[in-house]
Simulated assay, not measured.
Amino acid sequence: MHRLRAGVVGVGSFGSLHARAYFENPSTELVAVADVDQARSVEVARRYGAKSYTDYEEMYRSERLDLVSVATPDNLHVNPAVKAAEAGIHILVEKPIAMTLEDADRIISSAARNGVKLMVNFILRFDPRYRAAYERVSSGGIGEVVTMWGRRTTLLETARKYGKFSNLLHDVIIHDIDMFNLMSLSEPTQAYCVKVRKACRELGVDDAYLGIVRYRNGAAASFETSWVLPSSSPHWLDARLHIVGTGGAIYIDLQSHGLEVVEDVKFSRPDLSNWPVVGGRLMGNLREAVNHFVECVAGDKEPWPGGADARKALAVVLALSESAETERPVALG
């Protein structure tokens, strides 16, 4: 069986998981990774028997890749993705697709022009709970969607790590924005948002956002997001989604993953959803997303979600950001 030749650009915390997913997938051969941090590139490459590069363009020229994951920092997705498309390599880019609509359009148009597949990694679409909720909503199981509410709060150390090149809207709550867009079965028309800055003032980023998104079919979504939880929190992520319809409701709660561990000095709720390692193998939503991308490339199918859905989520995020600055609602569409 022909195995697809896979590469990864950016092998930090997320990119190294992509590398592992390709390494463990029987349909792919992880042939190379690239990272500007040479030591990190070498370490991940050695772990999975791949070649190490510090220049992704050199990797593209040398390795005849079939597909690549772009897992660089949020503000550095554009050039690796565009260059991959120009080299004829299918692309899986971590969310957000980009920081601006102009850059998102560059990636989308380059992929289309060069005939390569483009997927953006919104891993909640591969969580069985969110997927089951979407199937119930889209089949009319709870009637017409009336309201949606989402919470996504995480640790202060996340702000210290990711606030250097991104923000809560682009990096964290965009997951729920994508879910709102999907579950609404409609198009966003207006966004309103307020921000709070206290604990993260010295970092130069906001602590929290609270917002509302309205949809063309009359549905409305509200959310709260922050990254100020202390390191002593029993969970690194408190995520929930409520959907109320004219004929029912759906509730998703990821505060507990069904496993609680009590030790002498610690109580924890390990993540069993996103990228847990169980039995020596990577499991969870991220693995399923990577496997879906591989299946689409191998079977010549369109990946889900593609560039259009990622652009829509980004447009809402940018409208929310503008609203938080101006303290006024912002129209969409």
Rank of each mutant, 00 (worst) to 15 (best):
A21K: 08
F23T: 12
E24C: 07
S27H: 14
D35F: 09
V36I: 15
V42E: 14
E43Y: 02
A45N: 11
R46L: 01
R47C: 01
D55E: 15
D55N: 15
H77F: 15
V78E: 07
A81K: 05
A87V: 00
E94S: 08
A98C: 08
A98H: 02
D105F: 04
R106N: 00
A111L: 03
A111G: 03
G115K: 09
K117Q: 13
I123R: 07
I123V: 08
I123Q: 06
F126M: 10
F126E: 07
R129T: 00
A133Y: 01
V137N: 03
S139N: 05
S139L: 02
S139A: 05
R152V: 05
L155I: 00
L156S: 08
R160V: 06
K164F: 14
F165I: 08
S166Y: 10
S166F: 13
H170P: 02
V172D: 13
M179W: 08
L182C: 03
M183L: 09
P188I: 04
T189D: 10
K198P: 00
D206Q: 07
A208P: 06
Y209I: 00
V213F: 02
Y215M: 12
G218A: 12
G218C: 13
A219T: 10
A219R: 14
P230T: 12
S233K: 02
D238T: 11
L254P: 00
G279C: 04
L286E: 01
H292D: 12
V294Y: 11
V294P: 09
C296H: 08
V297Y: 08
G299V: 03
G299Y: 07
D300E: 02
A308Q: 14
K312A: 07
V317F: 05
A319K: 03
R328K: 11
